[in-house]
Nucleic acid binder design. Sequence first.
DNA 1: AAGTGACTATGATTTGTATCATATCCGGAA
DNA 2: TTCCGGATATGATACAAATCATAGTCACTT
Lengths: 226, 226
Amino acid sequence: MAETAREEVLKQSLIFSSLNDRELAELTRFTIERHFKPEEFIFWEGDTADYFYIIIEGRIKVIKYSSSGKGFIIAFFGVGEMFGEVAVFEDKSYPASAQTVVDTRILGIKKEHFLSFLGNHPPVALSIISVLGGRLRDAQSRLKDMVGERVEQRLARTMLMLASKMGPTLPFTRQELADMSGTTTESAIRVTSRLKERGIIKTVRGKITILDETKLTLLSEGPPLI
Amino acid sequence: MAETAREEVLKQSLIFSSLNDRELAELTRFTIERHFKPEEFIFWEGDTADYFYIIIEGRIKVIKYSSSGKGFIIAFFGVGEMFGEVAVFEDKSYPASAQTVVDTRILGIKKEHFLSFLGNHPPVALSIISVLGGRLRDAQSRLKDMVGERVEQRLARTMLMLASKMGPTLPFTRQELADMSGTTTESAIRVTSRLKERGIIKTVRGKITILDETKLTLLSEGPPLI
DNA sequence: AAGTGACTATGATTTGTATCATATCCGGAA
DNA sequence: TTCCGGATATGATACAAATCATAGTCACTT
């Protein structure tokens, strides 16, 4: 990809929106581009963290595995979003694994380059703080949900959270939905089947569409509608 | 508290360690001091977030409540640590409630003051990024634990996490331990009783001391030792 | 057109843990 | 001292959800 095209991508990205063309060009010189096929791993939990990444095209999921080997999807990220940044700012190895969902192209920036760049560009640092703050808020909210709510509510909340980010049609399998909600595929299927019967959602293979957000929200908050 | 004393407190705090005396004095002028008795609430989830805080003396817990009213302790913070910052950086209301554990004094800094100060002091922004990154890492790790592990493992991990932060003696009741692990008081008591029998921990009213960290770690990772 | 594998579906059974119920222990207050 | 409330303890029961098992469905390959 040409330098100017890379600059364009960075410019679109929320965290770099404050930069002018000269600064973008400066940053672009530090980037390397990488391409991955679907289901490929970009890095594994525990790998040395030299780079942090921004998605140019495609979609990735961030996963942690529990002692039994069961994976839990911490987050999905799409075009313009950064990932792998926590390790970089903390000088530790990656705390989770990153796997592509579809064909994906990413820009990587070396840790040292980025840290020094950050030091000279306070607005970018503030953007990063804002992004991290938002993610922290999400993580803590989900933490409460995962331990305090029952499976039906957890699934409803996961769907609503995803919908607020990417619209009413969610491109996920029940398997993925389950892995994001801390439950099993079977339970996810049972719950979504019931929701489908009640006309709250619509499903096709690998996709879920929320039809009645109000009812779903109600369900996510209280005891099941009888 | 006198201005110089406040400055001293800020200087001790990790996030402001990069500031010189003049900058500290500047920051100190923005602070207000507040005092709370044990179990008092500093703010509630949903309150408008005007201030973020740094603890001068005492200890606080950050709590979120699920729809059923059950509280989940997201974090404990002690002297020199900041809290309530996520809301400030995101221009939203507080995402959780903060309650003191013991007599506690805190310094508050108004949102706008702090944001403009940050813009002019990049090293402080980098510190904050680092702190937020660490907290995000913790939250995501706990997220995985809470959904992927059984109660015994969750409790073991919570204890180990706390021990790594504050030493082998943990000043918490089983109730609090349960609320940090997403389980009930009864279950926490049952598990800790078993651990006590096996000599892995020692307990006195309101306190738990880890005697055999190795065994506890083993337990936290795998199936129960038969 | 047939084969393959991932996804969806559903029933039967098991199990971990919450819930409910009581009881004892301990420290501080009166 | 006695009283009292929070903390600890323990048994009985209920239940949500995991697990195990089996099968149907759809998309894509050869």
